[in-house]
Amino acid sequence: MSGAAFELKNINVHYGYARALEQVSLVVRPGEVVALLGDNGAGKSTLLKVMSGAHVPTAGELFVSGERVHFKSPRDASASGVQMVYQDLALVEAMDIAGNLMLGRERLMHGPLGWLGFLDRKAMRRESQRELDALGVRTAPVTRSVEMLSGGQRQVIAIARSSARLPEHGVLLMDEPTAALGHEQTELVESLIRTLAARGVSIVVVTHNLPLASAVSDRIVVLNRGRKVADVPTGETDKDTVVGWITGASVQAGVLQH
């Protein structure tokens, strides 16, 4: 489909006789937020792993900006402009915010000290602050240790780190970004998702939080037992209908696609 930032066609994932995903197709457009919903065991995490390069599908095709890709690892996905924010965040708690944001992108000092591997922490902090300012993020000083942050602040830092590694109009995948967060902390994450989408980032959010899905998504996609049973603009459905798709009560009505 033209104009797609990320497209999956007829994805299958089989583990022997067990079928985790069956003929799942999905299109994510530039700047679009897609909420991927489903009960436990529906296939959400498996699909996210296929998109992030952690799983190689048994069959099916993946396209990034119209170009067919073959992800054999998360590194391949990252090279194609796809970043994943994992549920465990993968932050280094003993390191400060700047160190976490620049992880894998560290800046070395100039001259002999740089040759010896000494980091230019001032430059890293300045760059980290610029990146947070560009996203409108006001969490804590970039010198603060991650272990001193709240759950919401940590989630925002993890999202900001992944988004900083994206090319223009990249794709960001999120696995349960508001799990165990309170209302105010969830609002921090919601605000950042909207900011990134407004900048053209395509976002897929796996969540059990239906209010979050309604608040930030342009489209809701529901999986049930490894199959896509609904694909509909968020404004054209309601909570009861979505719950029916998730539980399987409305699956007999057929797949809704837009």
Rank of each mutant, 00 (worst) to 15 (best):
R105M: 04
R19C: 06
M148N: 04
R144C: 03
T207W: 06
L8G: 15
T58I: 07
N209K: 14
P211T: 00
A179K: 12
A158V: 12
V69G: 08
L192H: 07
V142R: 07
H14C: 11
H169G: 05
G226K: 04
R121K: 01
K239S: 07
L62F: 03
K228W: 06
L8F: 13
L188Y: 13
L172Q: 10
S73P: 10
R219A: 10
L149F: 07
T234E: 14
R105S: 07
H183T: 10
F118C: 10
M95G: 05
V34F: 08
R75T: 11
A42Y: 07
S217N: 12
A180N: 15
E93D: 12
I97R: 00
I193A: 11
K9S: 13
I246D: 07
E131R: 03
R219I: 12
S250R: 12
V201W: 08
E187P: 04
G104H: 01
E7R: 10
L135W: 04
S65H: 14
R225H: 08
L26P: 07
Q252I: 02
L223N: 02
A79T: 01
V232T: 02
N209V: 14
V64N: 14
L172C: 13
T139Y: 08
E32I: 11
G41H: 00
A197I: 11
S52N: 15
I11P: 06
E184Y: 12
A140P: 01
T241N: 02
A90M: 15
D175Y: 14
T186Q: 09
E106W: 01
M102A: 02
N100V: 06
E168G: 00
E236N: 12
H55L: 13
